[in-house]
Design a protein around this nucleic acid. Structure first.
Lengths: 233, 233, 233, 233
DNA sequence: GATGAATGAGACTTCATTCAT
DNA sequence: GATGAATGAAGTCTCATTCAT
């Protein structure tokens, strides 16, 4: 529907995903509006990507739109054709990247499975949709800048976190009724499910150079600790 | 009680600072050096405290030294008498707050106890020395600003984290020899011990207003999940 | 009625411009050049009208060509097809609006009448051709922007003011020979004839909301003061 | 009382009035705060004067604070120590220059004299306090920028114009009771008293180079026209 | 040592103007 | 001719840092 949805649906935020062959603008015969619009969207994407790079590297306050523009291959003023100001660029960046997560979560919410299976699903989802993508960087940004952007934290909580938590709790409630071990505890604190994921994100950006961290192994160990050793995905 | 409380109550940021008679230069009828030095140290503390407030509230880049000065009750120029520049103030702030932790960790490192007891000790240490103090804010700052201040992350890793990890691994190694469940896993990923603590810190600063989080209960639940239900401190 | 009314009613800014059926441009088999030219002229008029609106509302420097274009219903680039740059647009606007005045003045210059009659004619001319039209706004613009646009002031002086003054002085000279009271004084300072008109223009744009001003009554009062009470048009 | 009052009371805005030998800041023995404050006030004045120069020459929108700073002999940032932003500088400039006028007007408002005498007083006041000073430029600024700064026009109307008008009307009312010719007319339109003054201000800034205007003679002629020839001040 | 006024580099943002379509 | 996306120069404003007092 919205531009954002498009951005995400095509997984353009995945690390090295060429995805659809983004049309170049310089062609004689094409219908103008279509080409124009496509070129515009490509530019918008380029700016968002560049912004994510710069914001991630320097933080919101210290990032310079000059650098964003240069990295995106556009002039400084061009940014303002697509975003009202620096803050709008930031917020739209977050929304564009995280928005699609919601549908994914909801899709996975339905089935009724043992706690461990569910935990493994969530861990897999985390690794695939967050840790392996630039969403990892966006979550870092939210953590770092959230206190200064209450709206951002609110968006992330209401649109992403709370939905994830509600979905998880619903499934855990049924497992708790079945007296599955850990289900009741996790229902009260579903945050515990993804806590190691957070650690992984932060560790990788802060301490990777001192001591690399094998995220998959970490997550497996986490599952083992909670549910006893067993085979994971 | 602990070293840390002293830091907060007495506004002493430095680990082992015996006053240090900072000699002044240009003064005709100077008072006793001791008094002077004490006054200087008090000022230094005031600035550090104010800086922590401002950096926490606005982030490093957006925090204004003007506000730090006002909050500390000194003139803007005074800050430069105690710190080379804004960045130095920031780094010294981190060091001053976290420095004392190290000794604490080392003190607790010696004894040989069951994994669960050790985990409970660490959790208690975390709650008492970090979550209940301003160190929580400092950890947030490291997380938020670390990528921009490699030295900071390095300091935190080498001076705090790695020591804690080494100590924990040493104790876990012995538990692993005893085949205690979970010991081996935690030895490989000691981060899992404190992951919920991190979640608590970030949650409190980002989402507290939407959904409060009972940290003690969270940590107990975490222990229960890892080691089975039991009474905690 | 007068040439000027036509300008306003028919949106013709240029002295002798016939009609013009607005035709669209993008068509392969273009119509007669005449139509083309007429369409172009209409566009030019639209731009000039929009420019007057915007310049009047915001001043030359603060007016945005974006707004002019939007108000004129054309693209921003189109403005540059008709005017070299913003300043040229401004100057041509002034000329287009004031140009026709000249002939009017010259027409009225010939007859030899008593001073009071002549003064009444001038006052009537002012009310009808300036105050009741957008020329009022243009005069405001000249007053406001004149110092920054010497050419503008020069144009207004040489093309409008000086001619008006010369014509008035010629008639006043003859009245002065007849010893008509005030004639000699007004000959030296014909500005006094229209001074209240200026006040009216400025007052209406600045203070109308505080205290409305009846321009006709003001002008009549002015005449009464100069020549003694009497009936005016 | 206020800074502004000081500014005006000392007539620092007069063209070439050395006035009080403004203390220089570089002196060893003086009490600090006093000197500081004096230096600050001097700077403020310098900025206001420079701003008046630049705003007069270029208009509010086109004037560059860079130029104001350079002309005032201060750094760009210094302006912001004294004024919130460009607009505040502009508004405070207007207020500082016009504020003192009020008291002058009120002082002259009391006595009961013939209309002509009163008119002569007003003309003299205009020439002395406005035309011979930089207030002339400020009035030009209000005329040029007023429409964009409603507060400005409001200030000028309520603080200056309306008071002047009320005072004049009060005196004219008594003259009207005495059946003095012109009194009743001027009571209805006191603007007519100063209309030529306005013309003079505008003429001097727009057309002086083409045809100089002897303001005093103009004002005398104006009085003659209204009250018949006679000796003026 | 302490102050805080002053500085000026640098960032964000606007908008006249251009030019490929 | 017409369009409007793109450009980048230029202006406002902030704030870390300096330095005379």
């Amino acid at each position: 529907m919205t531009d954002q949805s498009v951005i995400i649906r095509n997984s353009q935020w995945r690390a090295a995903t060429p995805a659809k062959p983004r049309r170049v603008s310089r062609q004689k015969n094409a219908r103008r509006p279509a080409v124009r619009a496509a070129a515009g969207e490509a530019r918008r994407q380029a700016i968002l990507t560049a912004a994510l790079d710069e914001f991630s590297a320097a933080g919101f306050a210290a990032a310079r739109l000059d650098d964003v523009a240069r990295r995106a291959g556009v002039a400084k003023g061009t940014i303002y054709l697509y975003f009202r100001d620096k803050e709008a660029l930031f917020q739209e960046l977050i929304r564009a990247v995280l928005g699609p997560l919601i549908t994914q979560f909801e899709a996975a919410a339905g089935r009724d499975v043992p706690v461990r299976v569910m935990a493994e699903e969530i861990v897999a989802l985390f690794e695939r949709e967050i840790y392996a993508t630039r969403r990892k960087d966006v979550i870092r940004l939210i953590i770092a800048e959230g206190p200064r952007f209450p709206k951002l934290a609110a968006f992330y909580y209401t649109e992403v976190l709370s939905k994830l938590i509600v979905a998880a709790r619903a499934r855990l409630a049924r497992a708790a009724e079945r007296r599955e071990p850990g289900a009741e505890t996790l229902m009260r604190f579903p945050q515990l499910l993804v806590a190691p994921g957070l650690v992984a994100i932060l560790w990788s950006s802060l301490f990777e150079r001192f001591e690399p961290l094998d995220v998959s192994a970490l997550m497996r160990a986490h599952l083992d600790l909670m549910f006893g050793a067993g085979r994971n995905t």
